[in-house]
Amino acid sequence: MNLFEKMKNIDRRYIYLVVALCIIIPLLIPFNSRTYVTDPTANLYKKIDSFAGKEDKAVLLSFSHDASTMAELFPMEVSILRHCFERNIKVFTICFSPPAAPLMAYALNVAKEDYPNLKSGVNYCNFGYKPAGLFLPIVLGMGDDVAEAVQTDADGRKIKNLEILKGIRNYDDLNLIIDFAASAAVFSWITYARVRFGANVAAGVTAVMAADNYPYLQSGQLVGMLSGLKGAAEYEKLVDVFAAYEDTEYPNGREFSPEVVKDTWVPIMSKKISYDSQGSVVQTNVDLPYKFKQARIGMNAQSIAHIMIIVFIILGNIGYFLTKKKTAEVS
């Protein structure tokens, strides 16, 4: 047996070990890295940001996933909520599957920890879990009247009387729906909320689903999309650079600019947010807790793991072609 045959028959547990190390080490020893912001993420950011401070505009987050895909979707949810909270944007949450209900509450709790003044029913409102059989009635019903269709929130309050609903009647006001899913769940929102009522729909999906959603992005049926951990990392960066930006000139965050994103990067290893903008470091007074940079640290591990996979494929194929050549020579 030559080296390649030996390598070919290597016990897979050694491979597993390499995988584990490639992921654990970068997580334990984080390093700064640049995040390249893609258009679908920036578009979603811009759309949400355009609602800033408006009483008659709101975002609805629909949670259509379970705990198994939390790793990718949770950082997205937290950073979108953080964006809304930073910029005083009304936000609603809803889910149609039982396992999503606690995830929704968890995401809200984690995001709002840093904003003690936010109030449920005023700044945000959790509609809670609604049975899957109600999906259509609620999605269609919200086209007429949100309060009528949803009736109660997670705490059982009649939402009709909540302060947050002032100015929010139907999809004209509840103008953006973001669906977080590991499936094509967003498609139903497109079919019903967008086709029938012209609501804007965006998606936060696992990386697996991302490629499938590109036609909808291009056709404008999706106004934006976050794809996987990468999308979450991009969004984290955008929120850091714009919404959470704080100085005397921009006390409540600043407007989005593609040019600024391009040449600003946020070193995540410092406790306070700092920016490296064209070589000059700007420090602001905003703390950056772990939860707000979780995706970016994860992306470090992702980098290493991708290189590992590519190396594995190349090694495997070299072995394959050499042995094939050998067998061809023998026969």
Binding site: Y16, V19, I23, T69, L103, I309, F312, L315, G316, N317
Partner: peptide
């Protein structure tokens, strides 16, 4: 929650081993 998340994360290991042994 932890179990269903873990169940799926096993796939990362399988992909790595498939990368080495099967993606031709």
């Amino acid at each position: 929650m932890p179990m269903s998340a873990t169940m799926f994360s096993l796939l990362a290991f399988y992909i790595a081993s498939a990368a080495y042994k099967a993606f031709r």
